[in-house]
Write a protein that binds this DNA or RNA. Structure first.
Length: 514
RNA sequence: GGCCCAUUCGUCUAGUGGUUAGGACGUAAGAUUUUCAUUCUUAAAACAGGAGUUCGAUUCUCCUAUGGGCUGCCA
């Protein structure tokens, strides 16, 4: 009974993914979005997108559209967000600009924050000087603030004068001294930090915008966010965020800090340069920079969104069973934060391909044919294409492989590899193939099965092995040394076409021999 | 440097105070297949190190090492 009551009094699950539009979203960000989304779905909650664009100097045109487009391709669909709407909008921080200052002022009034007039140049100077004295981390904190220019150290009338004068200022949090901040991370357990290690972070900038720290707390609170699921890089500032909630007198949401995605070689956080350097995409979709550079994406490489998502889900999470192939729907049912691992995960491009292959196999021939027509511009009738898909699917990783590797099903070969002929063409080859040509011409029902019957009878009759005829038959008809069953291929091409190709092949080889 | 976080096969990971430490990718060998791919079988491959607690630690505690993150009027 107690449990039921607790459950009923729990707040509804509302989570947000809060990217900054400073460039394309990389796969680490997509994974964070995915875990938020899955957590929301699993708990009948709401998944929200909020754009954190409080740094006007880092704004990148097109980035926000990219983020929304990429998430959409992934199937990570928000219930509330920019362009979608919702009760708690607007969902872009620059559009919420006016609401932050009163909150910052409120903290100053309550002695939880203060005005600081030090210029960026003065602060740089301070840090440089400290560094020169072998103190690499000078901080604006409870001991140093007394010797800086702020509303705590300056006389009240001067503060008033500066404010009225319109002097530029920032608002900093007044971090208390020697206090243990404790919070329970849903993935890592209890984390404790003493406030002596925390500095007086800027909450409100001199340009009239809040910093991430303030905006994040105000928005999470006003948007009724229940769980903050974000990357591990935020763990060090989480205690400060807890202090802010406390300063406002608000209940803090639950926190979960996700392990980082590491690069496949060596160590370190996966970065956008790693992709091109190591030959795999780090972005969900292609991104063209203003300078004309291209960062490649999974979508354009031919990855299926579900394969991409499946792979990402398993980078730092597992279901506790041996099942590895999941659809988005299935992930929504089994995902829990308890099964997210603590350590960083190295990204594995090889396994990514395997996920893709597995998901491709799961797509029906019919759907794949549609995909090839609609997205890859295949110019074949649907019926033939479906047959081609059926023949080629097992040896394809990407949809387009079916078209490129099965090109001979669509058009006649134009040349025959000389070195293959060199190796495989024997003295009796011409005779064997001509004999086979005659047999082919005699088949009335040109099905894979009957062709195979006739073929077997023929090699028995000529007293040779399969290899003496088959490889060359394949080479002359398809121009390739490998592929699906030649009997199936023959049936698909049809008697007339096979015979013509074989004749062409025989003449071509003859001319090569001269 | 300081603070915080992490550490099981090459990689992603399961797991327990007593297990032959399990699975997957990759690798190797073999089987199937006209070939390639698929599929199947098998193999090699891991508890970072040192103390302590304990009858017994991969598992619990501490230390060390290693790796990572943060240390901006960036997010």
């Amino acid at each position: 009974m107690q449990k039921i009551i607790n459950k009923m009094s729990e707040k509804p699950v509302r989570v947000r993914f809060a990217p900054s539009p400073t460039g394309p979203l990389h796969i680490g960000g997509v994974r964070t979005a995915l875990y938020n989304y899955l957590f929301a779905k699993k708990n009948n909650g709401t998944f929200i997108i909020r754009i954190e664009d409080t740094d006007q100097t880092r704004f990148v045109s097109g980035a926000q559209d990219y983020i929304m487009d990429a998430l959409n391709w992934c199937g990570i669909i928000p219930t509330e967000g920019p362009g979608i709407g919702g009760e708690y909008g607007p969902y872009v921080q620059s559009e919420r600009k006016d609401m932050y200052r009163p909150y910052a002022e409120q903290l100053v009034a309550n002695d939880k924050a203060y005005y600081a007039f030090d210029t960026p140049e003065e602060l740089d100077e301070m840090r440089d000087r400290a560094k020169a004295m072998n103190m690499p981390n000078w901080q604006y904190n409870s001991v140093t603030r007394t010797s800086m220019k702020n509303s705590l150290s300056l006389p009240a009338d001067e503060v008033k004068r500066r404010l009225e004068n319109g002097d530029p200022y920032v608002i900093r949090i007044k971090m208390p001294r020697n206090f243990d901040v404790r919070f329970e991370d849903l993935i890592r357990g209890w984390v404790t930090v003493n406030t002596n290690n925390l500095d007086d972070k800027v909450l409100f900038k001199s340009d009239g915008m809040p910093t991430y720290h303030l905006a994040n707390i105000v928005d999470d609170h006003t948007m009724a966010i229940s769980h903050v699921i974000r990357g591990e890089e935020w763990l060090p500032s989480a205690p400060m965020h807890i202090m802010l909630y406390e300063a406002f007198g608000w209940e803090a949401p639950r926190f979960a800090h996700l392990p980082l995605l590491l690069r496949p070689d060596g160590n370190g956080k996966l970065s956008k340069r790693d992709g091109d350097r190591l030959g795999f995409p780090v972005f969900p979709c292609d991104w063209h920079t203003a300078e004309g550079e291209l960062y490649s994406g999974y979508r354009e490489k031919g990855y299926l969104p579900e394969a991409f998502i499946n792979m990402l889900a398993f980078l730092g999470w597992n279901p506790g069973t041996t099942q590895e192939i999941f659809s988005m729907k299935e992930l929504e049912e089994v995902f829990t934060l308890e099964r997210v691992s603590k350590g960083g995960a190295k990204f594995d491009p090889e396994k990514t391909k395997w996920f893709q292959q597995q998901h491709l196999k799961a797509v029906s021939d019919d759907q794949l044919a549609d995909l090839l027509i609609n997205q890859y511009g295949a110019k074949v009738d649907k019926t033939s294409l479906t047959k081609i898909v059926h023949l080629m699917k097992e040896r394809a990783i990407f949809p387009q492989d079916i078209l490129t590797e099965g090109v001979y099903l669509l058009e006649r070969p134009t040349e025959i590899d000389a070195s293959s002929i060199e190796k495989k063409w024997k003295d009796d080859s011409a005779s064997l193939l001509n004999g086979w040509l005659e047999k082919l011409a005699s088949i009335s029902e040109f099905s894979a099965h009957s062709i195979e019957e006739v073929f077997k009878a023929y090699i028995a009759e000529r007293n040779v092995g399969i290899g003496a005829v088959m490889f060359l038959f394949r080479l002359l008809v398809t121009g390739h040394g490998a592929g699906p069953s030649m009997f199936e291929i023959s049936e698909f091409l049809g008697k007339q076409e096979v015979i013509e190709r074989l004749k062409w092949g025989l003449t071509t080889v003859e001319s090569m021999k001269k």
